[in-house]
Design a protein around this nucleic acid. Sequence first.
RNA 1: GGAGAGGUGGGUGAGUGGCUGAAACCAACGGUUUGCUAAACCGUCGUAGUGGGAAACUGCUACCGAGGGUUCGAAUCCCUCCCUCUCCGCCA
Length: 426
Amino acid sequence: MLDLKFIREFPDKVKTGLANKNDDPTKVDKVLELDLKRRDIITQVEELKAKRNQASQQIGMMKKSGEDATSMIAEMKRVSDMITDYDGKLSEIENDLDGILSWLPNLPHESVPVGKSSEENVEDRKWTPDGFSFENDFKVKDHVELGKSLKILDFERGAKVSGSGFPVYINKGATLERALINFMLDYHLQHHGYAEVFPPFLVNAESMRGTGQLPKMAEDMYTCEKDGLYPIPTAEVPITNLHRNEILSEEELPIKYVGYSACFRREAGAYGKDSKGFLRVHQFNKVEMVKFVKPETSYDELEKLVVDAEDILQALKIPYRILKLCSGDLSFSAAKCYDIETWSPAENKWLEASSCSNFEDFQARRASIRYRKLSDKKPEFLHTLNGSGLATSRLMVSILENYQTPEGKIIVPEVLQKYTGFKVIE
RNA sequence: GGAGAGGUGGGUGAGUGGCUGAAACCAACGGUUUGCUAAACCGUCGUAGUGGGAAACUGCUACCGAGGGUUCGAAUCCCUCCCUCUCCGCCA
């Protein structure tokens, strides 16, 4: 949620930001118009309420002293009816206003390159392990072939059990997946100072609104209508909402959580493109990092967040590159975002395996997550960030394909071997 | 799923229609006292919206789990929902 006062004060900045995010800047004018109406009604209705409160007190005293208050009560009844009337109008306006505000995306940070689409994202840096080459001296198999020939992935049976996009890991594939998750969690706990969270996988609508999935992404989410719950598209949702409607103290910041969850996405309308194997699935596993920080530190924390994710890839010796997303490619809630993409030799391209974002106070305002400064007793919205550390599906593509041998075996990355208990999949 | 009890400020906890935005205590913060610490004493001590003010500050309004209703007036009465606890049933 954007700050209404900020919109009031700097409408042009908001308009520019919206335009850069491919949104409609004229929404700002509607907001300002409704805000004006709203404040006008508030002044009137509050004046009436003050009058009523005063009179009610007087009526109480008159009754106590045995005086007749009939005419005053009759008059106040009229005033009360007027109040009901104004309150109705007010809530109508506030609904309309909220209807627009909850659909307004966060504004891009000034350091974000302006651009329309993913084509204008900017490569920030690239890393490859020692001895790595983009050229292969044998014909590489893709992850689907490898999964099939080694009997470690079963997309067909997943489709039978659930539908397409629900991959099954089996045999050493299942163990490798579990090893990868455990390795990533342990790494963040031991080297990066995160606290571990194992969150719920279903959340309520209020949580979805808090992090910004609702209302805009409703079509991309699964629903459990009977219970008003949603399977989470990312652990960001339950973990960020852990502190919804809370006021934290300055001393406890930054709070850094890491948690595993399965992630569920409908991917409505995404069929046909990049849908092979793991490239686009409805359920995948992800280790997610979430930070709650003081506003003045959030951009430093964003850089550190990216490095935390990179450390995992360097330990796994997987080639990756980092993109700075342009304004038009930023997600709804993000002010700035880096994507980390890992290399797929079979696809001969980079695959998005992580997204690290600073939401500034956008989610904090929606979810009302504040902190109290030591110097100033007034609570303030904090900043939230999150980053995948990382998603296993795309990462698994890169691991299988980069670690394959000419004979079609997979060497287990060294750091995972103690987790898997085996060194080769053949 | 059935029966019962309950949800009040950072915490404990009073409050069953009118001067209660809310007693008291604890915690916290500021101060006095003190060689230091402790104790004692005094004071401050919720959030949001809206208006006034350059600001410090201040007026008003709202908020006692959430949303409705009754009433001139609701923490207090009524309805719906949510949550917590206890017991029973079911169950990984």
